[in-house]
């Protein structure tokens, strides 16, 4: 099927038929292009492919920060609350993280882990820098002392 016809019959904003017996999940569907990801937060049957026709689009997530150092997330809270109330709904880790940061859910444990790892990395980085500085200072001192000794003996 040509691309424009496919887009016409299966729009990314959703519209797939809900099958009651099947499991559904709220997850991210990658759009955007190469090296520039952009995600839709969608409700979709769990067994469907990543960019298959979703039941409904619940929001967007732009993971690249803008000029004000912000990552933009939009959530259709009313519809999210509806889908959370239905049965057989699975929510993926990435979406749980976003909902946790938004204050919709309690903060997801992966966020704590990320934060802890980032802090540990930053600490080791700082310690490394400190050690390097100390080394440099010591070398400079030795250099200063060496010519003094030479002049003193001469």
């Amino acid at each position: 099927m040509p691309r424009h016809l496919f887009k016409f019959f299966f729009p990314a904003s959703g519209g797939a038929k809900v099958m009651e017996s099947r499991n559904k999940s709220i997850r991210l569907a990658r759009y955007g292009c190469t090296n520039r990801p952009f995600y839709h937060i969608v409700v979709i049957h769990t067994r469907m492919g990543r960019n298959d026709h979703p039941i409904e689009q619940l929001g967007t997530f732009d993971p690249s920060a803008n000029e004000f150092h912000e990552k933009l997330v939009s959530l259709n809270i009313e519809r999210i609350r509806y889908w959370l109330g239905t049965q057989n709904i699975h929510i993926t880790n990435q979406v749980r993280e976003l909902f946790g940061l938004a204050g919709l859910f309690p903060i997801y444990h992966r966020t704590y882990m990320k934060a802890w790892r980032n802090r540990a990395r930053a600490e080791t980085h700082i310690e490394k820098q400190k050690e390097e500085k100390l080394k440099q200072e010591q070398e400079e001192k030795e250099k200063e002392e060496a010519p003094k000794e030479a002049t003193g003996s001469g």
Binding site: A65, V73, S74, L101, I107, T111, A115, A122
Partner: peptide, 16 residues
Amino acid sequence: EILGHDVSKYVFTDIT
């Protein structure tokens, strides 16, 4: 506890 989870802010908009 989540200090440093990301370098940038997250802005959440309700598009209901």
